[in-house]
Design a protein around this nucleic acid. Structure first.
Lengths: 147, 147
DNA sequence: ATCTCTGCAAACCGTTTGCAAGGGA
DNA sequence: TCCCTTGCAAACGGTTTGCAGAGAT
């Protein structure tokens, strides 16, 4: 598995636990720490929740996995190596769409030009109102709308 | 106090506790729930933490207050009525700058045009690397950099 | 008078930590 | 061998909840 080799090459110590967590998260979309545990346990019954948390923290640092709050107040993890993208969730109905990272290119450029910062955003959780819900009602007007 | 009148007009029930929390948060920048409690207690000793949480939740729903995680893993609250803005935090040194909401205008327009969603983002927490830290080192390269 | 909000206290729950044993490199 | 990682269990800490009484409209 190439990802594992890459990690070993980067000087990280690989354990069965780490490989299993990585494998579990690679195939899935967004998973909570508990869901990762549920997916690993069948293959490695004695694995501990603390290990899951420590491993997810480690994967976050390697950049392979992103941690995000998609609005329901719980942290979800997703394997994003090489595929940065973002999520836009409807605050009314919860519908979720995926946004390509290219959408942020202009913003990145402006922030770099005007402030010198390099934006680091591989997996953002954005919120708004979807077309259907907007048609149904106007639940909120931003203070700047209609200026 | 105009904000209070506006809330009453909107049909909300005003209590001394709510007014004190509102007052406390209006004058401050980012405050945690605990910090709000600390600021209110001197003037209203018997106030309870649960009330703070319930009141902040209420203020969030009115749109007067935003809740954000600025990267240290704890929720902070800020009075943003009429002044949407965003924060960009350096992942290396922690330096923080404020971004005007106008910076998101182009993104908002694209999201609306291409996906039909109305982006709701009055107070985002963004992350990146500040000019000084970037000069010192290159801690991370996004998978899409250098394409 | 009505219905919401508050205080209290307990529970909650996801997450973290200290420590000794286990196991990669 | 050395040092990092794991399992265990306990603690943690911010947040939420049920309930009875207080209070706003």
């Amino acid at each position: 598995m190439e990802t594992a080799e890459e990690l070993r090459a980067r000087g990280y110590r690989l354990t069965p636990q780490r490989l299993l967590v990585l494998e579990a998260i690679k195939g899935a979309g967004h998973l909570t720490a508990e869901q990762v545990l549920e997916r690993v346990q069948p293959e490695y019954a004695m694995i501990n929740a603390a290990t899951i948390y420590r491993t997810l923290e480690w994967l976050k640092q390697t950049g392979l996995v992103a941690e995000t709050d998609l609005g329901d107040g719980c942290r979800v993890y997703e394997f994003i190596a090489g595929h940065p993208h973002h999520h836009l969730t409807c605050l009314t109905c919860g519908r979720q769409i995926e946004l390509p990272d290219e959408l942020l290119d202009a913003l990145r450029a402006r922030i770099e030009r005007e402030y010198g910062f390099a934006l680091r955003a591989d997996h953002m959780g954005l919120f708004g109102y979807c077309p259907e819900c907007r048609e149904r009602e106007t639940p909120y007007r931003s203070p700047r709308e209609g200026e």
